[in-house]
Amino acid sequence: MVDAGTLMLTEETLVEGLREGKNWAFREVLNRYGPALLGYAKRLVGDRDEAEEVVQDAIVAILHHIERFEGRCSIRSWLFRIVHHKAIDHLRRTSRFVKAPDQEPYAESFETGGHWKDTPASWGRNPESQADARKMLELIRDLIEQLPNNYKEIIMLREIYQMDTQEICNVLEVSSVHARVMLHRARQALYKLLEQALQEPVESLM
C-alpha cells in the first residue's frame, strides 16, 4: 500500500505524514536519509556508536519541530544541518575539533611570478585500470578522515552527497563565496594528502 508508493513520495507528502505522526513517514525519513546521515556523522565524530546517537538526536529534533518546518530548505538540508551542529558540539566538548589553517594549501607551490616551483608529481596511476582506481578509492576514503573537520565536511557534502553550492550553504550556514573557497581548499588539501601517499613506496599501499 503506502510502502509501494514511497519511491514516488514528494517532500510535501512526507512532511504532511510526519506532522500527522504517520509511521510510514518516519520509516521513509530513515530509509531516505538515515544512511547518508550516519556516514556523515561517523566521519565527523569518528565513532560508529556516537554517530548513531548524533543521528538519533537529529531525527528526534526534526520530529519535535516538524510543525515549524516551512519548506524554505529541504528536509535533507535540515537534517544535515542538525547533524553538523551536533557533531561539531560533540567534537568541541571532547576537544577533538580541528579547524583548517587559514591559508591556501598550495600557496607555497608557486614562484612570485605565478609559475609552479616544482612540477606537480605524476601519480603514475592509470585511471582506466580497475586495480589502480580501486586502490586510489580506498586511499581517498582513508585520507578524507585525516582532513580538518571543516574540509572533511564540505568534501562529503559535495562529492559524496552531491549537494550543490546552495544546499551546502543551507547546511553549513555560510555564504556561497565562502562555501566555494572552502570547497576548493578542501579538495586541494585532499589532493596534497593523496600526492604524498602516492609517493610512498607501492608496498605501503598494499
Binding site: 530513515l30 538515515g34 544512511p35 547518508a36 550516519l38 556516514g39 561517523k42 582506481a133 586510489m136 578509492l137 581517498i140 576514503r141 578524507i144 568534501i155 562529492e159 559524496i160 552527497y161 552531491q162 585532499l190
Partner: peptide, 10 residues
C-alpha cells in the same frame, strides 16, 4: 573517485 566513496549502511 571521491564521489564513489560508499555511504554508510544503517
Amino acid at each position: 573517485l571521491t564521489g564513489q566513496v560508499q555511504v554508510e549502511e544503517l
